[in-house]
């Protein structure tokens, strides 16, 4: 994945967060959105479907470590890893 791809990925994730938290939600790429109570519990499932739908990955039981989903940075890393694995 190039640096450009990664920037685009993060931008898509940020947009998705905003669409669920309200347009004026403020968060940094490293902020833990679950700990800050910015999202309701259904959001986690919506997020999984969003990632599968947008980035053509399959999220499996073993992937469901909250560490993979806590922040924009964490999700971008996770998606990058999934893509690399499926390309390998």
């Amino acid at each position: 994945m190039t640096a450009n791809d990664n920037d685009q990925l993060k931008s898509d994730i940020r947009d998705y967060f905003k669409s669920n938290m309200g347009k004026d939600a403020r968060f940094a790429d490293g902020d833990d959105i679950f700990a800050d109570g910015l999202v309701n519990s259904l959001f986690a499932l919506q997020l999984v479907t969003f990632l599968e739908d947008s980035f053509k990955i399959t999220v499996e039981n073993d992937d469901l470590d909250l560490q993979n989903f806590r922040s924009v940075d964490a999700i971008a890393d996770f998606v990058g890893r999934k893509r690399n694995n499926s390309a390998a």
Binding site: L42, L45, N61
Partner: peptide
Amino acid sequence: LGRRGLGFLQIVNTALD
């Protein structure tokens, strides 16, 4: 079923949906 500790987030939410 599902990850430990994620019984609500993962399993209950999926099931109820």
